[in-house]
């Protein structure tokens, strides 16, 4: 019974951690522009050009090519093209790791789908008809490829981090632990599949009972341990810097590519005006905010008198 609570707890912690980060990011004020070219939605993103290249740019219509962002973001997330371009040795290790994680996330989705289908009376098995067979075989492929790649990638990353003096020096204990945890989880999951759940039927059954809240039924010990380990990782990842799996979107979209122009009377201008009224308490002699001066006060005071 306790085992059945673990995935719920993991998902709850995952959601809380993700939402907390989202709230934190969204609650931060509008920042000054800090874009970095190429900006993917620009017409001339191919060479890194911007709207500033046009005469009287403020009078020109601005057409952002959002598809340009997708064209950069999707291969970046799926295939880590940036790492491939700038750090091949790392890519050889981190790509299998990340792709393994994506497949593992896909596995969870397939298990959920399989569980729901089974609960609805659809047989999910290799010999069943569509969609049961498709879900079955996809689940098997995602399970072995996902955990296998994750294990190999994490192991390769761990060995590199331990053997490279620079990486080792820059690593906090948690950086090493994270990789050890992934190796252990990937290894346990793979072992559990091979030893006691080759066609993933037990895990799908477990998932079915979880989604239908029929929280009971035996699970082999090894599989149970793997479930606990994987759940722990699901809960743990968004509480660490590995939250970059979703915060990366903000780092690209809200910083690197954020070139929204402030125009008179715009919503953006209103936000800026509100922020210019924030009280400053920087203490240096040339500011002496003291928590009483606003940004406008600081920017407009006569420095010659200081």
């Amino acid at each position: 019974m306790l085992l059945y609570l673990v995935p719920f707890a993991a998902v709850a912690i995952f959601l809380v951690a993700v939402v907390a980060r989202l709230v934190r990011i969204y609650s931060l004020p509008v920042h000054l522009r800090w874009e970095l070219y190429p900006v993917a939605h620009e017409q001339n993103a191919a060479y890194g050009g911007s709207f500033f290249e046009h005469v009287d740019w403020w009078q020109q219509p601005r057409a952002k090519r959002h598809v340009g962002e997708l064209k950069v973001m999707v291969p970046e997330i799926l295939f880590l093209v940036g790492v491939r371009e700038h750090n091949r040795p790392l890519w050889a290790r981190t790509f299998p790791f990340h792709f393994g994680l994506y497949l593992s996330a896909g596995l969870i989705a397939l298990l959920l789908l399989g569980g729901v289908l089974q609960a609805a009376g659809v047989t999910v098995a290799g010999s069943a008809g569509f969609p049961g067979a498709a879900v079955h075989w996809l689940t098997v492929v995602f399970a072995y490829a996902g955990t296998g790649l994750c294990l190999i990638g994490a192991l390769a990353l761990l060995l590199r981090r331990l053997s490279d003096p620079v990486l080792r020096t820059h690593s906090a204990p948690a950086d090493l632990w994270n990789l050890v945890a992934f190796v252990a989880t990937g290894g346990l999951a793979l072992l559990a599949f091979l030893v006691c759940d080759r066609d993933l039927a037990l895990l799908r059954g477990f998932t079915q009972r979880v989604v239908t809240f029929r929280l009971g039924g035996e699970v082999p010990t090894l599989l149970a341990i793997a479930i606990v380990a994987a759940s722990a990782m699901v809960a743990y990842v968004p509480t660490t810097h590995m939250a970059h799996f979703f915060t990366k979107w903000f780092m690209y979209h809200d910083v690197r590519w954020n070139d929204e122009v402030n125009t008179v009377g715009s919503k953006l201008e209103k936000k800026i005006q509100a922020q210019l009224a924030y009280k400053v308490d920087w203490a240096a002699p040339h500011i002496q905010g003291g928590g009483t001066k606003t940004w406008v006060d600081v920017a407009t005071e006569e420095v010659a008198k200081r």
């Binding site: 934190r24 990011i25 004020p29 509008v30 790492v83 750090n87 915060t247």
Partner: peptide
């Protein structure tokens, strides 16, 4: 916002 994002998410990969 850019500072917080940069402080929180370095993977220490040295790329």
């Amino acid at each position: 916002q850019p500072l917080v994002l940069s402080m929180d998410h370095c993977a220490k990969c040295q790329t």
